[in-house]
Design a binder for these strands. Structure first.
Length: 271
DNA sequence: CTGGTGACCTGGCTGC
DNA sequence: TGCAGCCAGGTCACCA
C-alpha cells in the first residue's frame, strides 16, 4: 500500500471520522509489529480526544490531549474505520475504540508497521527528527537536491529514496520520476547536474500530486487479491514493466536490482 | 562519515 | 498437487 500518496489518502479518509472523538479504549492483539507496541498505550489514551491528525513523510501522527501516537504503515499496513461490532479478522492487530459506535482498526499482514506513543513533541521523536523536507512543501526543489548530492557516489535513485534527503519517495515513484525526468537510476547522485535536478524535482512533485489525485496506487490487496483500478493501471510508465516496451521509444525497458529494490528504466530515454 | 547488506514478516506466484 | 525459492509498497541496524 503505502508511499506518500497512499499515506495521504489514508489520512484524508480517516480524519473526519476520528477527529475530536473521545477514545474509550485501545486494544492490541499483537505485542509487536516492527517494534514492541508500548503496553501503556491503553491506559494513556483512554478518555482523551484526537485533536489533530497529520502526516510527516510516511508517518501519521495523532495529537491527543497530553500525548501523541506515531503510526507507520510499513509495507502492508492499512488504517480503516469500522463499526465496533465488526469482529477483527486475521492480521487486524489493533483497535482504537471511540465512545460512539466506531473503531479505528489497523491491519498489517507483514507487521513492518509501527505504533509508538510519545509525551513530547512528536516531531522530535527519534523516528521523525532526522527526516528531510516534504516534497510537496516549499523547501524542496532542484537546488536543494543538487547541493545535498555533491560528492555523493550513491545512485541517484537511492539518493532520492533516502528519507533523510527527502521524505515520501518510495520505490514506485522513484522509478516513475526518474523516467519522466530522463535520468538513469544508476547514475551517481553527485554526477547529476543542477538542471537535471531541477527537472527531477518537478517530476517528483508531479508524480506524487497526480497519485494523490488518483487516490494512490494500490497494487494488490493481499486479503482478497483484487487488482485495483485507477492510477496503477493507467499511469505507471515503468514500474512493474520490465522487458515491456517503453511508451516513448518502443524499445524494451530494462529491469535491474539496485539496493535490493526492483528498478526499471529505459536505456535510450534515460541518460 | 559513507555506502552496502541483512533483517523484520506473511503470502502470492512461478517453475520443477 | 506439493513444495522450494523468489518477490513485494519500507527502513533500521550493523558492518566494512
Amino acid at each position: 500500500m503505502p508511499e506518500l500518496p497512499e499515506v495521504e489518502t489514508t489520512l484524508r479518509g480517516i480524519s473526519k471520522k476520528i477527529l475530536n472523538k473521545e477514545i474509550s479504549s485501545f486494544i492490541s492483539r499483537e505485542k509487536k509489529l516492527r517494534w514492541i507496541i508500548p503496553p501503556t498505550i491503553g491506559k494513556r489514551v483512554k478518555g482523551q480526544r484526537i485533536n489533530n491528525a497529520f502526516r510527516r513523510g510516511k508517518y501519521i501522527i495523532f495529537e491527543l490531549d497530553n500525548c501523541s501516537l506515531i503510526i507507520h504503515l510499513g509495507m502492508s499496513g492499512k488504517l480503516r474505520v469500522f463499526n465496533k461490532k465488526m469482529k477483527p479478522k486475521k492480521h487486524e492487530h489493533w483497535d482504537l475504540n471511540f465512545t460512539d459506535n466506531w473503531t479505528l482498526r489497523y491491519t498489517d499482514i507483514r507487521k513492518f508497521g509501527v505504533l509508538d506513543l510519545t509525551l513530547k513533541n512528536p516531531l522530535e521523536h527519534k523516528l521523525l527528527k532526522d527526516l528531510g523536507p516534504e516534497p510537496l512543501g516549499n523547501s524542496f526543489n532542484g537546488i536543494y537536491l543538487f547541493e545535498k548530492s555533491r560528492k555523493k557516489s550513491i545512485a541517484v535513485k537511492q539518493f532520492i529514496m533516502n528519507a533523510k534527503i527527502v521524505v515520501g519517495v518510495g520505490n514506485i515513484y522513484a522509478n516513475e520520476a526518474l523516467f519522466m525526468a530522463g535520468i538513469k537510476p544508476i547514475k551517481k547522485a553527485g554526477k547529476v547536474t543542477k538542471k537535471e535536478y531541477e527537472n527531477l524535482s518537478t517530476k517528483i512533485v508531479k508524480v506524487l500530486k497526480d497519485a494523490i489525485h488518483e487516490g494512490g496506487t494500490t497494487l494488490k490487496d493481499y486479503s482478497n487479491a483484487e487488482e485495483a483500478p485507477g492510477y496503477f493501471k493507467k499511469k505507471l510508465q515503468v514500474y512493474g514493466r520490465g522487458n515491456l516496451e517503453c511508451f516513448i521509444c518502443r524499445k524494451n525497458l530494462k529491469e535491474i536490482r539496485l539496493g535490493n529494490r526492483s528498478t526499471v528504466y529505459c536505456v535510450s530515454c534515460q541518460n
